[in-house]
Design a protein around this nucleic acid. Structure first.
Length: 425
RNA sequence: GGGGGGAUACUCAAGCGGCCAACGAGGACAGACUGUAAAUCUGUUGGUUUUACCUUCGCAGGUUCGAAUCCUGCUCCCCCCA
């Protein structure tokens, strides 16, 4: 093979566990491997990105990745890591989510050419044909309840209770693996370390059903240095869909990754070579305040997910929003540029007459910049509100002099939260 | 079925007739510092017509000048006995 995939994962810090013989198998021949995705939302978020990168590296090492979308399993719900019974999704929602996620995945994997081009499979395609009696007779027969109960995902739920549906999940997932081995010669299943139990049910099932050897490999679940969950920001999830998370916000997420975390994240998400990454890390450690690593990571990710043009916009917006620029620089921008820069910032339309109601009304009534007038007064008192880059106090009067290009107010809450108010005359 | 305990703001958790919009901790937001960091320090954390008023302490009633606090019924949770 071109590259040793396992070795690649090792230095990138993406290897948690694997079954014996996995590395040998991967070195021996072009191997087909898969990762399953849950169609729980109509977009992937960056929490899904680790398994995506697993497949990306897998393909770059010369192997053939399969993306399994859980059209069937999404109808059941994986109990792993869940404390409560999951809400079931209806068919139409799942179909819609699948389509949207497929498009996003194509930015990471090559689906079009080569002997190892990626493929998408949907487990609903084989489960819809399979009836319950056949399943419990042909598949259920091979795995004991004792074996299934020993899994952490089940053990952890014995106290609080779980439905038979969720209990069956590992068998269903296991059968996916068996099916893919039989029809696609897929010998490896990968996933996050929380999937270890489900994956090994698959290899066990395959062994008992006479399918021969199959392999499992998991990546560690990434956590931030402070222990909090990766992939969330104040606003919630960071999505790949630009309608849910604008390219600017996406870029900002990576720029804001902490010094400690970025050292771990870089090798996981970047496709740069080992030596490139190591020299970037060395530079980062010497001069962390320059944030070379964060910038490199943010650029690479934004290009891959959104493209060159969106990256340029994001950088431009970031420079204006966080550079040393003040009101003067804002006013120097022509209207088109101004709108471009603030494109991904929440914006509001307000009538000119509303300005005379005062700043508190503007913040809390005419716009939703702040949830209530009390909140607005508090923020003003705390010196947290800026208009056109200048801090303002409660009594300030707003006139047409404040408007940029005779139409816009740039409002800031704190340092990082920008709002564009479009004032209509 | 019998007995006991509990339900308070985003979370945990005090309060047990007026001084309670409710101690404290965490979280979150903001200010200073800084690198759009981290750590640290400070402030805020129901609403409004903001020195006052209004709505909140599981739900519905009641007692009282006055209740998160007392009484009655209901719902849900935990423990013990059967």
């Amino acid at each position: 093979m071109q590259n040793n995939f396992v070795e690649e994962l090792r230095w990138r810090g993406m290897l948690h566990d694997m079954t014996p013989g996995t590395e040998e198998q991967l070195q021996k021949e072009l191997t087909v491997g898969y990762v399953g995705f849950d169609p729980t939302a109509d977009s992937l978020h960056i929490g899904n990105l680790v398994p995506v990168m697993l497949l990306t590296h897998f393909q770059r090492c010369g192997h053939k990745p399969l993306v399994l979308v859980g059209g069937a399993t999404g109808r059941v719900g994986d109990p792993s890591g869940k404390t409560k019974e999951r809400q079931l999704l209806d068919e139409q929602t799942i179909e819609k989510n699948l389509k949207a996620q497929q498009i996003q995945l194509s930015r990471f994997l090559n689906f079009s050419e080569g002997s190892n081009k990626a493929e998408i499979v949907n487990n609903y395609d084989w489960f819809k044909e399979l009836n319950f009696l056949d399943f419990i007779r042909d598949v259920g027969k091979h795995i004991s309840i004792n074996y299934m109960m020993a899994k952490d995902s089940v053990k952890n739920r014995l106290e609080t209770g779980m439905s038979f549906t969720e209990f069956s999940y590992q068998l269903i997932q296991g059968y996916d693996f068996f099916h893919l081995l039989k029809h696609k010669n897929c010998k490896l299943q990968m996933g996050g370390s929380d999937q270890w139990g489900n994956i090994t049910t698959g290899t066990e099932l395959i062994r008992r059903m006479g399918g021969g050897n199959s392999f499992a490999l998991t990546a560690p679940l990434i956590k931030k240095a402070d222990g909090s969950k990766f992939g969330k920001s104040e606003g919630g999830n960071i999505w790949l869909d630009p309608k849910k998370t604008s390219p600017y916000q996406f870029y900002q997420f990576w720029i804001n990754v902490s010094d400690e975390d970025v050292i771990n994240f870089m090798p996981i998400f970047s496709l740069k070579t080992r030596s490139e990454i190591e020299s970037l890390i060395a530079h980062h450690k010497e001069a962390p305040h320059l944030r070379t690593l964060q910038k490199a990571l943010a650029e690479e990710m934004t290009i891959r997910v959104h493209g060159e043009h969106d990256l340029e916009q994001a950088i431009k917006a970031s420079n204006i929003l966080f550079g040393k620029s003040g009101e003067e620089e804002l006013r120097e921008l022509n209207e088109a540029t101004l709108l471009e820069v603030f494109e991904s910032v929440p914006s509001y339309n307000v009538n000119y007459a509303a300005l005379s109601d005062g700043i508190v009304e503007l913040l809390a009534t005419h716009t939703n910049i702040l949830p209530s007038k009390s909140e607005a007064r508090k923020m003003l008192k705390a010196n947290a509100i800026s208009i056109n880059k200048n801090k303002v106090t409660d009594g300030i009067e707003l006139t047409s002099d404040n408007l940029i290009h005779n139409a816009y107010l740039i409002v800031q809450k704190g340092k990082k939260n920008y709002f564009l108010v479009n004032v209509k005359k």
